[in-house]
């Protein structure tokens, strides 16, 4: 059995602070980490491997600059067997369509696995589109918002979160699943895992290696264009009411009730 886990390197969001006056993020030379939601996908893969009766190989696949080898090593420290990085200037500026197309080409090169796992979305772009689009390119059934996944005879059983509840589905054959954070709690890397991961090789593949032409990847090939970026301000002038003692509390609560009435909320 083979599982491919897609991971993305993102700026470490905990290293960011909010500029209170402009309401914007200050990124302080943020180091890159595995997209936090992808860690849950890696954990699902590791749990499936541990539960599997057959031999199981887990490959982490990422697309990004050469420095992204760092996040692949991080994944291998957790127990992932191999890391593959798609890195080429030609890929730069890819939107979700081009990214999904390029990743799909890489999966075809690597050989279609039994399962592809990815995080629900990346914490930087927050589109959640790359996984499903890639599933479509590979003609795999796409199960999104997955809160649990396990292997069954001939395929997979997954539980997915819908707006009003949870649905359990069974899938025949290979599939692509986008997992939620509740699917599994990521483990911590161990000293032994860290040391093993340092010694492992990471395959780096270029556009040429994949046979992907410039018409299908990178900024120029991307169907979408960013026209402008601006910073909204959600900051409000807060009417702060002290409510430490009972008298203050009563007054403050009355003010809230009054506001709710004004706004027609009660």
């Amino acid at each position: 059995m083979k599982i491919i886990v897609l991971i993305k390197q993102v700026p470490e969001s905990q290293a960011t602070r909010m500029d209170e006056t402009t309401g914007t993020l200050i990124r302080e030379a943020a180091s890159s980490v595995i997209n936090p939601l992808d860690l849950h996908a890696i954990e699902c893969a590791l749990l499936i491997k541990e539960a599997a009766k057959e031999k199981c190989e887990i490959v982490c696949l990422s697309m990004g600059p050469p420095a992204a080898t760092k996040v692949l090593r991080e994944a291998m420290a957790l127990g992932v067997d191999h890391g593959v990085l798609l890195s080429d200037r030609a890929f730069a500026g890819s939107d979700t369509w081009c990214t999904a197309f390029t990743l799909a080409a890489a999966v075809r090169k690597l050989g279609l696995p039994d399962l592809i796992l990815c995080g629900e979305r990346a914490t930087d772009g927050e589109t959640g589109q790359t996984g499903p689009a890639m599933g479509a390119f590979l003609d795999l059934p796409v199960i999104s918002f997955v809160s649990h996944i396990e292997q069954i005879a001939g395929g997979w059983r997954a539980r997915r979160m819908l707006e009003d509840g949870y649905e359990t589905v069974e899938i025949d054959g290979p599939a692509l699943a986008c997992v939620l954070k509740e699917a599994a709690v990521p483990r911590l890397p161990t000293l032994q895992g860290k040391r093993l991961s340092r010694a492992k090789d990471i395959d780096i593949m270029s556009a040429q290696d994949l046979g992907v032409s410039q018409d299908d990847t990178g900024l120029k090939a991307s169907p979408t264009r960013v026209v402008k970026i601006f910073r909204p301000s959600h900051l409000k002038k807060c009417e702060k009411l002290p409510a430490m003692d009972p008298a203050q509390a009563e007054k403050a609560v009355d003010r809230v009730v009054c506001l709710l009435k004004e706004k027609g909320l009660i």
Binding site: M18, E20, H234, L235, K236, C238, E239, K240, L241, P242, A243, M244, P246, Q248, A249, E250, A252, V253, D254, R255, V256, V257, L259, L260, K261, I266
Partner: peptide
């Protein structure tokens, strides 16, 4: 920081304020 995004902010103990707010809204309704 939540206060920077709120229209009204109550600085106090939620265990006092929450039941009080619940009761007063119920009464207002």
């Amino acid at each position: 920081p939540i206060f920077n995004y709120a229209e009204i902010g109550l600085c106090g103990d939620l265990f006092t304020l929450l039941p009080m707010l619940t009761a007063k809204i119920a009464a207002a309704k």
